[in-house]
Design a protein around this nucleic acid. Structure first.
Lengths: 95, 95
DNA sequence: TTTATATTTAAATATTTGTTTAATTATTTA
DNA sequence: TAAATAATTAAACAAATATTTAAATATAAA
């Protein structure tokens, strides 16, 4: 559980996630978006993978990264009680 | 924006937030929940305040902390595009 | 007005984190 | 098979973080 919060704490990793909403991308293509070395991006992708926020599959010499629903579901599950807190109190009886 | 992600990265701070769903609490009462010194909790509360996840008001010699909707709205705003991503694709035409 | 209580602020420190350069692994192409 | 391409892993290091003990501030009670 902790790992997903650690993963989204970094601005670069959040940008990677946003970039992946455009669709699956190679590691190299992702790295091009950032003014940072490939090993650094590789490390960020590894962390996102650990958090199950992304997944990848091998296509020849390329690694294609995609968003992974699982990690986002963890975040959502954590967030849920607070949305309830702020929506409440609701009328107990429908008028 | 960054500060809110930093704030929820720490497990103690997340527990504090959860504790506050039970209602407003004094700093001391919050500190009692944790096997940790008061200055440490004070520091965590300060960070949560910066992130606008909590707010406090002074009641005599006590500081009463409450959840603050504002920070949670920031998280929600960031999360929204991903919920859309995973709900999509939906049929463009209602059958 | 002294003493006690509630809490924060400051200084110090060990741990964690993000980045870089260099080396390594795996795949494709010539 | 040799050279090129895609990407990761490893080692090193500066910067950020969580915690502690000690000192300071503010309010309440005696």
């Amino acid at each position: 559980m902790d790992i997903v919060f650690k993963a989204i704490n970094d601005p670069t990793r959040r940008e990677i996630l946003r970039f992946l909403t455009h669709g699956p991308q190679n590691a190299g293509t992702i790295a091009q978006q950032f003014n940072m070395t490939k090993p650094s991006i590789s490390h960020h992708l590894d962390l996102l993978k650990q958090a199950q926020l992304v997944d990848f599959s091998k296509k020849g010499q390329f690694l294609v990264y995609t968003l992974n629903k699982s990690g986002f579901e963890s975040i959502h599950a954590w967030f849920q009680p607070f949305t309830l807190f702020f929506e409440l109190p609701k009328p107990k009886i429908r008028l």
